[in-house]
Design a protein around this nucleic acid. Structure first.
Lengths: 361, 361
DNA sequence: GTGAAAGCGCTAACAT
DNA sequence: ATGTTAGCGCTTTCAC
């Protein structure tokens, strides 16, 4: 395919033009073309550029990778791309990876994540991992020996050498529970996550911190879940079945929040009149949610992804501190219709509701 | 790194073992190892297997690709991974790609999709494209000269050579509008999509077909949108502002459906008492949606993705018909609380509603 | 700054 | 069925 006549004609009959073709057409050596492509100064840059353009030359990534041991690609690891949080994160990563010219591998699956990481890691220069981490996955990440950034999930109580981009989960939870306390709630239910998951622990700790700061007789009723949709539903049922059910519920992630709302819906509990609600993680369209638009602790998901990708880019190009970096982003508490005063403090609120109703009619 | 002492020790000091290392340890030629790895029959298979295991040998994909001109990877092209439909589809593709051992490139972005396809195509053996298609994207797909399957979106009125996995959009829309007609609706609003998008056209045609079949005085009020969220909201407003507003609305995709519901919510229109609603595409949690759980025409998104990937696998391994295949899946109409009889036929329904209310209280 | 030459790790002819 | 050989397209010494 490469050869004399190809250069002369300007169009290798079939298949891609090679660097040798470009070199021949530009009347330089392949080495010069290679240098030109790497952005180095070259005497006949214009002629080379013209040849590249004329032949529609595209470097062969396999050959380049074989020689230089790079791939020019990045992997993003998530357990379930169907989770809106993961999808937004990936969207954020994708947008900056695209700008940087890095194709993105999507590696995922609920199980065997360690094997998946092992399979993908030779194909990439760097990894973004936004999945709950167990020992096996962590080991796979280490085996990769590639720049890696952990997004949102950190290994449970363990030293590690990776960069990290997280949100301040504890502060977010504290703000949420604090807001409920300020409204007068004294018994607050928490739909928590697994103890082994970093974000679950932090959010629970944040909730507890808010209670401690209040220093009044505020009690927290905690139900653990697996952070699933169904788990949230069951846990909420348990909370509401207690002797003295809470007047407010804080659900610690997006899936359990759905479960909580479904349970509330099933039981036709007036929100926020009888029960207030705050969830962690944004809803796509809160204004369409029953029984009331849910208050949420929102994270900047796309920004988080974008930041992770930029961090990685820095590592790959050798810039950045040698030490692992840890970036903590802030959450935002958005109070919506699902949050109000507890029943025993609602006199004035009920009046306000009536007044609003009048205005509507 | 490869060489005599490596084989003897069994552990190349650093970096990966090469095929030569394996061959030396197993006392066969590299070619035999290569054949073994490709699943061909080899005399000393056990010894080779042992050597592979002992050295933790992982083939170098770059070298393999350079030689064999394959990549072992697949690309999935979507415009916006944040769209739940796209995310589900990708999940379906991912699950079978994982089983087949194909890493997945996620290629996407709203703009410049043709360039993105050009960039990704040399890195993959096959492409799944689930994005609206314009001339530029289509050309990029053709330039790739790789097995390609189009999911959901087909080029607007144009011959093409690609495999296709779609749902029967027209039948789905016809079922939805037919159900509204059967309930007694005579004026039905349609929030349609852009004329250039195949699914938009088909869904509108399906709606029209239902009206024709009815042969009574049923009229369709059509508002075009760009299939966006905001577009759906505006279009719904226009429908409701008409002289004789429709008693039911059919929204032709998931984004416009959200917009429609928001508009309905804004105007506090009772659903389904005064206005019925059906959308195209599933909602993640329909029971939590206000003002009423939306009826929807559901597609088997994950199955669609899985099927596309299997089709591709067949093409890559040379199996399958030479001619392009076209697979059409069925949709499912799910009627929920957002759909009922029109106001002028609600006498009995209102009674039913009252009765239900009594039972609750 | 440039060109010549070597070689990354693998697969595919080819001859045996 | 096996080994030998060549070379995929590129980057990177090295000498100039």
């Amino acid at each position: 395919m490469s050869g004399d006549e190809a250069g002369a004609i300007g169009h290798p009959a079939e298949g891609e033009a090679t660097m040798a073709d470009v070199a021949a057409l530009a009347e330089v050596s392949p080495a010069t073309v290679s240098r030109y492509l790497q952005g180095k100064r070259v005497r006949d840059a214009e002629r080379v550029a013209a040849a590249v353009e004329q032949l529609q030359y595209r470097p062969n990534q396999a050959a380049r990778g074989l020689r230089s041991r790079t791939t020019g690609a990045v992997a993003v690891v998530v357990r379930d791309i169907g989770n809106p949080y993961a999808a937004s994160l990936v969207a954020g990563i994708q947008s900056v990876a695209g700008d940087l010219g890095f194709p993105l591998y999507l590696a995922g699956g609920v199980d065997h994540l360690d094997e998946i990481v092992d399979n993908i890691s030779p194909r990439v220069d760097a990894i973004v991992c936004a999945a709950t981490l167990d020992r096996a996955v962590l080991d796979a990440l280490r085996r990769a020996r590639k720049p890696t950034v952990l997004v949102e999930f950190e290994p449970a109580g363990e030293e590690h050498e990776f960069d990290v981009v997280v949100v301040d989960n504890a502060a977010g939870a504290e703000a949420a529970v604090g807001a409920l306390i300020d409204l007068g709630h004294r018994s607050i239910g928490v739909v928590a996550g697994p103890d082994g998951v970093s974000v679950a622990r932090e959010r629970l700790e944040g909730a507890e911190a808010a209670v401690e700061k209040a220093r009044e007789g505020v009690t927290l009723a905690v139900e653990r879940t697996d952070f699933s949709f169904a788990g949230g539903r069951v846990a909420t049922g348990r909370l509401l079945d207690r002797e003295e059910p809470p007047t407010a519920i804080f659900a610690c992630n997006n899936l359990t929040a759905i479960g909580t709302l479904q349970c509330i819906q099933d039981r036709r509990i007036p929100v926020p009149e009888q029960l207030s609600f705050i969830g962690f993680d944004p809803f796509a369209h809160p204004d369409l949610v029953c029984p009331a638009p849910p208050s949420t602790v929102d994270r900047p998901e796309e920004a988080q992804g974008a930041l992770a990708m930029r961090l990685l880019e820095g590592r790959m190009s050798g810039r950045g501190a040698a030490r692992p970096r840890r970036i903590v982003l802030e959450t935002t508490l958005v109070l919506r219709g699902s949050t109000g005063a507890p029943p025993d403090r609602r006199a004035d609120h009920a009046g306000a509701a009536r007044r609003r109703h009048h205005l509507d009619g």
